[in-house]
């Protein structure tokens, strides 16, 4: 299936969860936050939250600013 991650299309295995996506991205679970289709996915729910085909995801972390 195809999902949109941080504005870029990405191929993801059917049935993947948010946790699977983070592994595929090579992103550590700590210090990041995930929004799927405009809603926060809490860390504890990453392994149990399926990513549907066509989902729009934002994966964010803290950077210098303000």
């Amino acid at each position: 299936m195809i999902v949109l991650v941080n504005g870029a299309e990405r191929e993801l295995a059917d049935g993947s969860t948010v946790a699977d996506l983070l592994v595929a991205l090579g992103v550590p679970g700590a210090g990041i936050a995930v929004a799927m289709d405009g809603a926060v996915v809490p860390r504890a729910a990453h392994p149990s939250t399926p990513v549907p085909d066509g989902a729009v995801l934002e994966v964010l972390t803290a950077v210098q600013g303000g």
Partner: peptide, 17 residues
């Protein structure tokens, strides 16, 4: 000290934290 939130693939990740 303030930090901003941005997409993971920009600006060098969590070094500031």
């Amino acid at each position: 000290t303030t930090v901003s939130l941005r997409r993971v693939d920009v600006d060098g990740g969590t070094g500031v934290l």
